[in-house]
Design a protein around this nucleic acid. Structure first.
Lengths: 356, 356
DNA sequence: TTGACGATGTGGAGCGTTCTACAAGAAGGT
DNA sequence: ACCTTCTTGTAGAACGCTCCACATCGTCAA
């Protein structure tokens, strides 16, 4: 019954339906010039043979109906939010999403994007900002591209960002309003963004400095860099283990914030000793047992927007679009008034030994 | 300088190097019959032109060097662990990983797998177990496949599972040893696994029942189903809101466990009222602020194994392999002795209002 | 000297689609 | 009745690669 060797091709369908190859192709692309009779014949043949057009063959001439999304790491829940949003926006279209994570070392952004381009996707969403602008221009000339989190404006690609400067300002002001003055910023090593001033973390860091200065706290400014994966704890312990530790920390993203909270617990401190604000408002942080104060930039919505822009580009739009989303502050329990004393008691003494 | 229109092909490289198309192809595949001189010429030409072979063209005759992995949802961190492991195992090989999430409705497992097959991947890792066996046989005849979490044994595909029966037993016994007798099981709607008895959650549920019976608790057996996404809270609140609520819950996976903990907090209870065990040992649960007791099945390691098996298959292995991993119990703070009274005080009164 | 053989390079036939021409009728206008 | 135009279908040339079959040229043993 089943063709063992090679799978069923358009030729088989044509033979079965008693029409030409081109006719079948026309039906599938619903091109002009197909009678109802033929459409019916072909469609039954397709169904009977369970025919699936091969994307790779199709790619040689037409479209692949595949969109690619590149993300720095699948471990950061913010990016999975973006993916969910993107996938939801694609529901009902004939487009499919494939995901390329830049890999454990994260310095593979361009490589991962290239992987997608090699596969002839019809459009690319890229999240890694550490990409050579010139290379990007070349690439975007050939394939529609939307960059997420890139604070620049090119004619050739669209961008979707949240207002990172505003988000950082909100975080710092929130802490200030609670009475904090020694506010440190813990963020990822700028190497990850290739020292590009247009990456989200660079913008947040800059805004942190500016806001501190505005508040007359320029001399209390303190920025600590942590490696992207692992090693957050070491840096946080070093920061918080000293006598002149800050009373509050603004973390570059939620994962870092959780690492900082981890260290707070490990040092036998509580959030009334050190308040913590994150960025991204991930599900983990939102859980009542964590209740992390964070800046919400709605990854899901960003994913939806990004896909919409990409589909517009594919449909022919030429003029670039640059969307900016306004973040919101989610105040929860990891930020408490300075010296109020009602922070949560973290039971550092019974930390599990198996905890990796 | 840059070719505006169509990108650089193997023909361009051949022209530049002054050799034939076939010669360039040989060099790239490092096939037999290439002199050092020619290799050098071709390689410089490739570099100078920044040539990238098109995967789709290649797919028409040879391999795509692409592995596809299908997962039910990207939101469950266990699956992202698997992906990380798989990606790490591919590091250094010429293979690339593409990911196809089954989408927000999860009932699209076969569809997502088909998407990968349409793209002519060299091998497929599939996690959704709700797949028609017959269809799977057909597919595995054409493409190497490894199934993750499927408790059956076919000649045509390999499987990697953890011992779910053992894991569930460990969870229940752990609670039993702490003095609990009213132990409920909260798990996903069996519809998600198409009522297949070979899915991990079905096995866990069965083992839960068996273990309860062994312990003489057959009449205390209570299984509650929750929808896969959202709605966990409702089901948990219904379960815990009654006077005869269980003193302990064994959750089908960590996400559910977190939902249960959420409800525990919302009802003004603590873990000394209701102990909770999860499954998967996700990063979230392991965080000291959550400290969820869970069963670890090492998704990362499973991802590595899965890739290894797939590469072996591609390399020509015919005999099926079925790997079973032994899970381990990670005892943390969400399980406490019955009526001990030292459970953690969850501050239900100040739950954030913005919490989604 | 003459085969035989190994090493190296090229020619060219696919692979499964799409899509531009074009052919053959049918329909409509004068 | 004749010419145009529209509709419906088919032929066949790409697309960019792989890989089998073959040509060519040395080298070496007999």
């Amino acid at each position: 019954m089943t063709q063992a060797r090679t799978s069923v091709t358009i030729e088989d369908v044509a033979a079965r339906a008693g029409v030409s190859r081109s006719a079948v192709s026309k039906v599938m692309r619903d091109a002009y010039g197909v009678s109802d009779a033929m459409r019916a014949k072909v469609e039954t043949a397709i169904a009977e043979l369970a025919y699936r057009p091969r994307v790779s063959a199709r790619a040689m001439r037409g479209a692949t109906y595949t969109l690619g999304i590149e993300i720095p790491t699948i471990k950061n829940p913010f990016f999975t939010q973006v993916i969910s949003g993107a996938a939801a926006a694609l529901e009902g279209t004939r487009y499919q999403l494939i995901i390329a994570p830049a890999g454990p070392h994260h310095d593979r952004g361009p490589q991962a994007i290239q992987v997608l381009a090699d596969r002839q996707v019809d459009g690319i969403v890229a999240v890694s900002t550490a990409v050579d602008p010139e290379w990007l221009e070349d690439l975007s000339a050939a394939t529609p591209i939307v960059m997420l989190g890139r604070h620049d404006a090119s004619r050739n690609y669209d961008t979707v960002v949240n207002d990172d400067a505003l988000g950082a300002r909100m975080a710092v002001r929130h802490l200030y309003d609670l009475g904090h003055r020694d506010i440190a910023h813990v963020t990822i090593d700028p190497l990850w963004e290739n020292h590009l001033p247009i990456g989200p973390h660079a913008v947040r860091a800059r805004s942190y400095r500016e806001t501190m200065a505005e508040l007359g706290l320029a001399d209390r400014t303190r920025v600590v860099y942590v490696p992207q994966e692992g090693g957050i704890d070491d840096a946080a312990l070093a920061l918080l283990g000293t006598p002149d530790r800050p009373t509050a920390v603004f973390a570059g993203h939620d994962e870092i914030a959780l690492g900082v909270l981890n260290s707070v617990a490990r040092l036998g401190l509580t959030t009334s000793d050190v308040s913590v604000v994150g960025y991204d408002d991930s599900d983990v942080g939102a859980h009542p047992m964590v209740a992390l104060t964070s800046i919400n930039q709605s990854g899901t919505r960003m994913g939806e927007i990004v896909v919409r822009l990409l589909l517009e580009r594919i449909a022919g739009r030429e003029e670039p679009v640059h969307e900016v989303i306004t973040p919101t502050l989610m105040a929860r329990r990891t930020t408490v008034p300075l010296a109020s004393g009602d922070g949560r008691q973290l039971q550092a003494h019974d930390l599990p030994t198996q905890n990796k």
